[in-house]
């Protein structure tokens, strides 16, 4: 299936000045599950929704550590991300080896951008099919960058990539001021998860199995929370499902109402700015899935 005559390779422009293969690569990102990044003055948090191909399968890793001060979240073709993260790890290591200093976030992201750009200009090659959120803390502070297969990189205070990421961006835009002023990692993570849950499809909610969280910043080395370690953060949410779902089920279930008490002030003050009321419970499932059955999926 051709869209037109100008998408057989990545080096040919269309008459309107577009590179279709590159644009298709950007589409590949949207096929992947969402990843959200957000930064305050001193910290950067990445959260991501993991998918498993089938119920018996494991979940695809979404957050990858690059160095003690840097890590990435991905959306799109995971193998491409692995190649890029491997390259970043080598860059980070040779920076320490050759210059005795940690790789700066901006240099890291520009170095993979250069690689991606090459693919848009050489015949027979394919652009990377993955978008990355790069988080890092260096001598100029906390940074969050978005990397695209086109070779463009931009710095963000809050960014989201992957399926239905527009919902997360909307959340981040509405809460930007409180996010930027967050002085705790906890409130940053809660905002991240709030944004992430808005990307969920109808019958899915955040569980410790499908959610990855990472943080890096001042006095905190890059740390990934997966599986059981994520639960502590999910417990701080008022709800683990999409705002839209909650509106539909409004008043159906009050089970999680008391959990709002656990959320800190920063969150309760901001949840109002979201699209939904705060304490509507999710569907019929109990919010905390059983911890003993690793094969159970999140429906």
């Amino acid at each position: 299936m051709f869209r037109n005559n100008y998408d057989n390779d990545s080096v040919t422009y269309s008459p309107t000045g577009r590179l279709f293969q590159v644009e298709y690569a950007l589409e590949a990102i949207k096929q992947g599950s969402a990843a959200v990044g957000l930064s305050s003055k001193n910290h950067v948090v990445l959260v991501a929704l993991k998918r498993n191909a089938e119920e018996l399968g494991s979940y695809q890793k979404k957050i990858i550590k690059v160095d003690t001060h840097m890590g990435i979240a991905l959306a799109g073709l995971a193998p491409d991300a692995r190649v890029l993260s491997n390259y970043l790890r080598k860059q980070a290591m040779s920076s320490r080896m050759i210059f005795n200093r940690p790789l700066s976030t901006s240099k890291a992201v520009l170095s993979i951008a250069d690689k991606a750009q090459e693919n848009t200009q050489s015949y027979g090659s394919r652009p990377y099919g993955v978008g990355l959120l790069v988080s890092g803390y260096d001598e100029t502070g906390a940074h969050l960058y978005e990397f695209q297969p086109s070779g463009s990189v931009l710095e963000y205070y809050g960014a989201a990539i992957g399926a239905r990421s527009q919902a997360a961006r909307t959340y981040l835009e509405r809460n930007l001021d409180t996010i930027r002023e967050s002085d705790t990692v906890e409130s940053l993570i809660v905002h991240g998860l709030n944004a992430l849950r808005d990307t969920l499809s109808q019958d899915v909610e955040l569980t410790f199995k499908n959610t990855s969280v990472s943080v890096v910043g001042k006095d905190i080395d890059f740390t990934i929370y997966d599986d059981e370690d994520v639960q502590q953060w999910l417990d701080k949410l008022d709800s683990v499902s999409n705002a839209r779902n909650r509106e539909e089920d409004d008043g159906a279930d009050e089970e999680v109402a008391e959990e709002t008490a656990a959320t800190d002030e920063a969150v309760t003050s901001t949840t109002g700015t979201g699209a939904a009321s705060t304490d509507a419970a999710s569907g019929n499932d109990a919010p905390a899935p059983s911890t003993d059955d690793r094969m159970e999926t999140d429906e």
Binding site: I98, F99, S104, E139, T140
Partner: peptide
């Protein structure tokens, strides 16, 4: 080239290691 925004300075320990 890679530090167009500034702030990342090449300092003595880095030059020495290199």
């Amino acid at each position: 080239v890679y530090d167009s925004d500034g702030g990342h300075n090449l300092r003595a320990p880095h030059v020495h290691e290199y």
